[in-house]
């Protein structure tokens, strides 16, 4: 009896979540395949394939998947920028995180609270200040400028994840290997790296996620010269209407999220806590 009510509750929560979170995607899919969908029809009157032969102007998917829409270019840019940002953030944070967890180091709290600043300061303030500094440096509208600017919102996440990864590393295991005669290199390759790898991967997924979703900084620092999926989507729906091509683009812009959701669920699980709680404001509850 208990099992039945338990399942019933789970089903209720599940159905509710599906309706609220994934339900709104259905009309976007329908819209992307619609040719005529006027008020007050609940479904399109004319679907795109029925007029595909004699349509003179590009329909949603024809357009979205054509070179004119710049979708592939934007997707490539999004991927390139987020991968570069992630790699850079990892290189910057890995040695720093190791120092922060060392018991001899006294400034941990202060430094970690410096890393919460980008979560509090308005993105617009950062973006406009970057732009103003980057223009004279020739970095505005370049990949380099965007990648450097993305570092700031991304570093807090990477730092938190890596600090907790190092905290979870038991120094006794490494010492044991040393006692058994493992060289410095052997300890690193066979002990430290395998132990840290899942956590590092989790941190990288977080930063990939954050970077690929950034709109405002890319929009302002990129000066319209570098399109990513979010900036392309903004140029389509910025007017407040959603036509068929905008619907197609919305669906494309969801793809990285879907992929990352599957990837994070597989790899992160235990590191969820880092992402959610790791962003504590002063780190004092650790």
């Amino acid at each position: 009896m208990k099992g039945v009510s338990h399942n019933g509750k789970a089903l209720l929560v599940g159905v509710g979540l599906y309706i609220v979170i994934l339900g709104p995607i259905i009309p976007v899919i329908i819209q992307s395949f619609a040719f005529q969908w006027h008020w007050p029809d609940l479904l399109p009157r004319v679907w795109w394939w029925s007029v595909r032969a004699d349509s003179t102007f590009p329909l949603a998917w024809d357009y979205v998947l054509s070179p004119y829409s710049h979708v592939f270019e934007a997707a490539g840019n999004t991927l390139f920028i987020s991968l570069s940002v992630t790699l850079l953030a990892l290189i910057l944070c890995l040695p720093a995180a190791r120092v922060l967890v060392s018991p001899h180091f006294k400034w941990k709290t202060q430094i970690l609270s410096l890393f919460t600043l980008p979560l509090i300061v308005p993105e617009m303030a950062l973006a406009l200040a970057f732009l103003a500094v980057f223009i004279p440096l020739g970095l505005a509208g370049t990949y380099t400028g965007i990648i450097v600017a993305h570092l700031i919102p991304v570093l807090p996440y990477m730092m938190r994840v890596l600090v907790s990864v190092y905290q979870g590393l038991n120094p006794a295991v490494v010492e044991q290997a040393q006692l058994l005669g493992a060289s410095r290199w052997q300890r690193l390759v066979h002990i430290t790296i395998p132990l840290l790898l899942p956590g590092i991967l989790a941190g990288c997924l977080f930063t990939l996620l954050v970077s690929s979703n950034i709109f405002l900084i890319t929009f302002l620092v990129g000066q319209g010269r570098v399109e990513t999926l979010p900036t392309l989507l903004f140029s389509k729906i910025g007017g407040g209407a959603l036509d068929a091509t905008a619907a197609g683009l919305t669906l494309i812009a969801m793809i990285p999220g879907f992929i990352l959701l599957l990837a994070t669920e597989r790899h992160i699980r235990d590191y969820q806590r880092v992402g959610a709680v790791g962003r504590s404001i002063d780190g004092s509850h650790r």
């Binding site: 976007v28 979010p230 729906i237 969801m254 669920e265």
Partner: peptide, 17 residues
Amino acid sequence: KFPLMVPYLVGIALVIV
């Protein structure tokens, strides 16, 4: 967790539709 993974602009598109 899906909404956590996509840009705000996707949420805006959904609200418009």
